[in-house]
């Protein structure tokens, strides 16, 4: 564990909590892509199957359980409890366009051809692009609530911090995993346009509104 991974994990946790609190307090999930949340749930479930096979640490186990349970709770809030507020007309990105290529890529480019390893690799690839339905929804409506912007910023920071963690691990632990690094890089790049708007607008007290 190093400072980048820890802050990355905390940013990830913060993002999840912000989203759950936003939905719960406002009793509304408007502006949130249910499809991105379903994809993240698929990511956590396929990646954390090792909860049943390997024990790493209490921290590792606890965080994995939190990610799986909170993502399931988020999906439940969007599709059941507050479904009347769900923006289904704007949330039109096709999930299969992300899931199917991720499956194919995981079958082709992975470390070992075992069920657990292919599922882990699939989860890495899918996570890299899982935010696209959410970004698509924001671009369709042309704006995002400030709290949604904070959520996206925390979620985007997490993989960026992991990139620093991988640089650290390469130098100090001689650890290198190209699959994580390339996918993490793609994931972070997808947020760049949003990061720019966040820093130039939201941090200056304005709402995130896309340029016409």
């Amino acid at each position: 564990m190093n400072i980048f991974r820890l802050t990355g994990d905390l940013a990830h946790l913060t993002a999840i909590i912000i989203l759950l609190l936003k939905i719960w307090k406002t009793r509304s999930c408007s502006g949130i892509s249910g499809k991105s949340q379903i994809l993240f749930t698929v990511v956590y479930i396929t990646r954390y199957l090792d909860l049943f096979t390997n024990y790493i640490s209490a921290y590792n186990t606890l965080m994995k359980i939190i990610f799986v349970v909170s993502s399931l709770a988020t999906v439940f809030l969007i599709y059941f409890k507050f479904k009347a507020t769900y923006d289904r007309n704007h949330d039109t990105f096709r999930m299969e366009f992300l899931i199917i290529p991720s499956i194919i890529l995981a079958l082709l480019i992975r470390h070992e051809f075992t069920v657990m390893e292919v599922l882990w690799t699939f989860s890495i690839y899918l996570e890299a692009v899982a935010i696209l339905p959410q970004l698509f929804l924001v671009s369709k409506t042309g704006e995002a609530e400030t709290i949604t912007s904070h959520y996206l910023f925390a979620l985007g920071s997490y993989r960026g911090l992991y990139l620093l963690n991988w640089i650290w691990r390469y130098y100090f632990e001689n650890f290198l995993d190209w699959i994580s690094i390339v996918a993490g890089f793609v994931q972070t790049v997808l947020y760049c346009d949003f990061f720019y708007l966040y820093v130039t607008r939201v941090l200056h007290g304005r709402k995130l509104r896309l340029p016409a």
Binding site: I56, N60, N174, F175
Partner: peptide
């Protein structure tokens, strides 16, 4: 370069 199948990252 070491790669481990035991995934300690989240």
């Amino acid at each position: 370069i070491r790669y481990t199948l035991l995934k300690d990252e989240l």
